[in-house]
Nucleic acid binder design. Structure first.
Lengths: 174, 174
DNA sequence: AGTTTTTATTTCACTGGTGAACTATGAGTC
DNA sequence: GACTCATAGTTCACCAGTGAAATAAAAACT
């Protein structure tokens, strides 16, 4: 099979041919771009695969993990939108789903009564603690053969890339 | 704004706290995983942004680019599904959309009359040649500040990651 | 010749996400 | 204190993509 490797080979050939027709194309950068897209999609697929048995999707998982990681186990829809890159509309639905499963609670805030306080429940915490560890082995496999320097390098380069993307993002919005 | 940088900071803190509760978590790997997911999403957003003026979405663009990159400018739905990671259902719709715009043609194959031959039209080629160059500057910005070694390193590490993901993918399907 | 497999397409029900309008609260100003 | 503006969240109608099943035709096998 080797789905990804296959796609990558084909992409390399494709970009090679295109940059012969259009030589001013930044071929190396375009290739990195496509690699990031492909790997991102594939990692997402892998994640959803691990989440399916728990009947969670990516955004629900992320939301739950953010709450779990908070010292006080709580947040607001707005904040969760920001960190999960979800629209408010969708966050409402995510919260509905998690509330229905008893993993979080939703209640009005005292100080600012526009705000809604979302809080992870003890059941939610137990749920996370149970589902998380079985995911570790496959995460480890993802980076099999990576030396510590490899990992540090990758981390550094990705963060650098993130900085540049933020720049692009800003003038995209304006 | 610095949306991404912001999310990353918050993720670092979150993962830090979680790995105090669950110390056997592969924190470094998990972080790399999340970085890849975030960056992938952001690059996708950037791409869609550049495609919107042309009324193309990501899959249509990819499909068109694969055809454009082919020496003979043609392929089949099945092959395009494979390389774009799209379902057949969706490929049918993509093809419909591109045919309607006159960028590709769809016709029966001579040798194997089950097969459908999808071919980019001269108009399709002109379209690609016109829309592609304006995208280059922003791609270049993405990798601003990357030395040649940085780019080569990143390329190498991403391909290595792809290899591992393929392994995971195979036993995911079986 | 008859069965099985492959390729492409269509339909349908469903999931996940989005944009626009609406509601309610709070904050600033005259 | 009434008027305006901003913020937080929800509701609704819609779109893109998916998976499963049905259809149809051609090819491959035996």
């Amino acid at each position: 099979m080797a789905r990804l490797t296959n796609c990558i080979t084909m992409m390399d050939e494709g970009i090679g041919r295109i940059s012969q027709i259009i030589p001013q194309m930044p071929a190396l950068e375009a290739r990195l771009c496509r690699l990031m897209l492909m790997l991102g999609d594939d990692i997402e697929e892998e994640l959803e695969f691990k989440l399916k048995p728990h009947k969670l999707n990516h955004s629900e998982f992320l939301t739950l993990m953010i709450l779990y990681s908070r010292p006080d186990g709580s947040s607001t829809p707005g904040e969760l939108c920001e960190y999960t890159s979800q629209g408010a509309t969708n966050m409402t639905r995510i919260a509905n789903a998690l509330v229905k499963r008893g993993l979080i609670t939703r209640g009005g805030s005292e100080e600012d009564r526009r705000r809604v306080l979302i809080r992870i429940t003890p059941a939610g915490r137990r749920f996370v603690q149970k589902m998380l560890p079985p995911m570790f082995p496959r995460v480890a496999i993802m980076f099999a053969g990576f030396s510590d320097t490899d990992k540090r390098h990758l981390d550094r380069l990705l963060r650098k890339l993130a900085g540049n993307l933020d720049q692009l993002g800003e003038n995209r919005r304006s």
